[in-house]
């Protein structure tokens, strides 16, 4: 078996007395698209920065592309493409000048030709002399992705690449990520959009600095051991009362309204079913068992990890 593209163990990062990354172990196999999920402020950016050598961990070891994080930081940099969460190319340089700069730093040859081809593929050839700062959010994202893949890295670290981008651009972005993975590039992509998790081969879920779930989407959902029922009525007002009753009932952990349908989730399947049956039939609304969604799972996991913190 070949060595994983990312193999970091026990990473810890503290700022002051706050532990921002707490004993995080992540493995990403070669050629895989790994999702790195978690709410804002959970430590995704910090973990990714450690992986590309921009931050020194307070504890933990790691190998990236078979190279040691502590010793081979410079070599790792040459093989990794890192797309920062905030656009961090030069806004006072034109699109072409930015690409030219990146190509120079990676010693790409022939520089001119590669830059021209990249512009062509991006569809920005006609706007090459436009300042990067004038681009819209979606175009900035595409430029950044093109810039950090120009040197043909073996590993891509993408930090919330689709934040604030419209749905169409998001879809195109994911198509591009899958195309790159098809070429054998390993991708680790952080996001806090649940639906994007479904587009990853495997996911890692981090909350309050702790990694609390990993595996395929199905594994993560199954691993949480949750039972879900849908309770469905016709009137919003009535469902509001039903939701209130359910929240107070034994065995019920989450009640989330979707229109006039309630997602009712709990760890204790039998107790949950008893409560749902009693309240739904009392109110005269429909109820049925359902698949637990990834979102239900994460909300459950987050609640649990917060309880651990306290």
């Amino acid at each position: 078996m070949t060595e994983p593209a990312i193999d970091v163990r026990g990473l810890v990062k503290r700022y002051g007395d706050k532990t921002v990354v707490d004993d995080v172990t992540i493995t990403v196999e070669k050629g895989e698209i790994a999702g790195f999920l978690g709410p804002n402020g959970s430590g995704k950016t910090t973990t990714i920065r450690i992986m590309c050598g921009l931050l020194k961990p307070d504890a933990g070891t790691g190998r990236v592309l078979g190279m040691d994080l502590a010793r081979d930081a410079l070599k790792i940099k040459r093989e990794v493409g890192y797309m920062t969460q905030r656009f961090s190319f030069y806004e006072d340089l034109s699109i072409a000048e930015n690409l030219d700069f990146v190509a120079g730093l990676y010693r790409i040859a022939p520089r001119r030709k590669v830059v021209d081809r990249t512009l062509e593929e991006l569809g920005l050839a006609s706007r090459r002399n436009q300042l990067a700062g004038r681009l819209s959010g979606g175009w900035k994202q595409r430029l950044a992705l093109a810039a950090c893949t120009m040197h043909q890295p073996r590993l891509l670290l993408l930090d919330e690449p689709t934040a604030g981008v419209d749905p169409k651009a998001r879809r195109e972005f994911w198509d591009e990520i899958h195309r790159l993975a098809g070429q054998g590039i390993t991708v680790l992509v952080s996001t806090h959009y649940m639906d994007e998790a479904e587009r990853c081969h495997r996911i890692n879920y981090i909350s309050y600095g702790k990694l609390i779930a990993k595996g395929t989407v199905a594994e993560v959902v199954a691993g949480a051991g949750l039972t879900t029922f849908l309770v469905n009525g016709d009137h919003g007002g009535q469902m509001l009362r039903v939701a209130q009753d359910l929240r107070a009932a034994p065995g019920v952990d989450q009640v989330a309204p979707f229109g006039t349908t309630l997602h009712v989730v709990g760890r204790d399947g039998a107790a949950l079913e008893a409560s749902v049956r009693k309240i739904a039939e009392g109110a005269g609304v429909r109820w049925a068992p359902a698949e637990t969604s990834l979102e239900d799972t994460f909300i459950q996991l987050m609640g649990a990890s917060r309880d651990n913190m306290a």
Partner: peptide, 14 residues
């Protein structure tokens, strides 16, 4: 301050 340092350091400039 412009946030470009992160990118510069992530690239292989010594």
């Amino acid at each position: 301050e412009r946030g470009t340092m992160e990118n510069l350091l992530a690239m292989p400039a010594s």
